[in-house]
């Protein structure tokens, strides 16, 4: 290893700071006593906005909705992603490539296109916007992360494990339950956590599939466009950072451990 030049080090450090300082500033603002502007430096610090935010019924409802949507979308995405990965793994069939394209399309296309397509389809089908239309939108783009994690794991799983299980007389279900599932568990945790984080934070598709229900990102967005309650918004923003941080770190841990063990 050669030591890096000062210029290179400075440029690399600059990029890292660029990526992280804004969130640090958000932390600071959650404690400011200033409630009408974004004045820097904050005149003085307080923790009272946390209490105000916690007691705000709108925020509680939005948080509850977001958590429920993320949970259901995660479960649906894991089921769909695992089924697809199982089908694509070790079998060739007509339209196999097209199917894997359709899986990644919702995250490859700009969210607004997925959103507007689903919204017009929901209107065409004469469905009313509800909890379930939000879940449909979220599950559609969460399938990709579940699928990616499961298929990556399957590709590293030796087919002889399955063959051995079958040779020993296990049925398809038994083989899945006792051989494949333990192999997949860390991929399911990683994929599930990422899907949860993706759904919990999603705003663009949600605006189109939510009707007049408010998820937490929609609540934040509406208070950005029409500023009201700035200090409370700061606190909610901080809470979202912390809440999405947990599943990401868990996912990272699990995928690292899986890589090391394989």
């Amino acid at each position: 290893m050669r030591t890096a030049g000062l210029g290179l080090k400075a440029a690399a450090l600059g990029a890292i700071l660029y990526l992280h300082v804004p969130i640090a500033i958000l932390f600071l603002y959650a404690f400011t006593t200033e409630d009408a502007s974004f004045k820097f430096p904050p005149p003085s610090l307080t923790t009272r906005w946390f209490e105000v935010a916690w007691n705000n019924a709108d925020i509680r409802a939005a948080l509850g909705l977001s958590l429920r949507v993320a949970f259901v979308a995660m479960v649906v995405a894991l089921i769909l992603g695992t089924l697809t990965a199982g089908a694509v793994w070790r079998t060739r069939f007509f339209g196999r490539e097209a199917l894997s394209l359709f899986i990644v399309l919702p995250i490859a296309l700009p969210g607004i296109i997925t959103g507007i397509a689903l919204r017009s389809a929901i209107n065409l089908a004469d469905l009313s916007f509800s909890f379930w239309t939000i879940v449909i939108g979220h599950a559609t783009f969460c399938v990709a992360v579940a699928y990616n994690n499961v298929i990556a794991r399957l590709r590293r799983t030796s087919p002889s494990l399955i063959e051995a299980s079958m040779d020993l007389g296990a049925r398809g279900w038994q083989t899945f339950r006792h051989v494949l599932l333990p192999q997949l568990s860390s991929a399911l945790v990683t994929g599930g956590m990422l899907a949860f984080a993706l759904s919990f934070d999603e705003i663009i598709v949600t605006t189109f599939t939510a009707g007049n229900q408010q998820t937490l990102p929609i609540w934040i967005f509406s208070s950005l466009v029409r500023p009201r309650n700035r200090p409370v918004t700061n606190v909610v923003a901080l809470a979202v950072v912390v809440l999405t941080f947990v599943p990401i770190v868990v996912a990272q841990r699990f995928s690292r451990r899986a890589e090391e063990s394989s």
Partner: peptide, 29 residues
């Protein structure tokens, strides 16, 4: 350190710049 911003809240990351760039915010200061 590069991955975490990728996965953390997009909306909140946009919002943080509203604080940073505002006329009485940290950049001006």
């Amino acid at each position: 350190a590069v991955m975490i911003p990728l996965w953390s809240s997009y909306l909140v990351r946009v919002y943080s710049w509203k604080l940073i760039l505002s006329a009485d915010g940290i950049v001006n200061w």
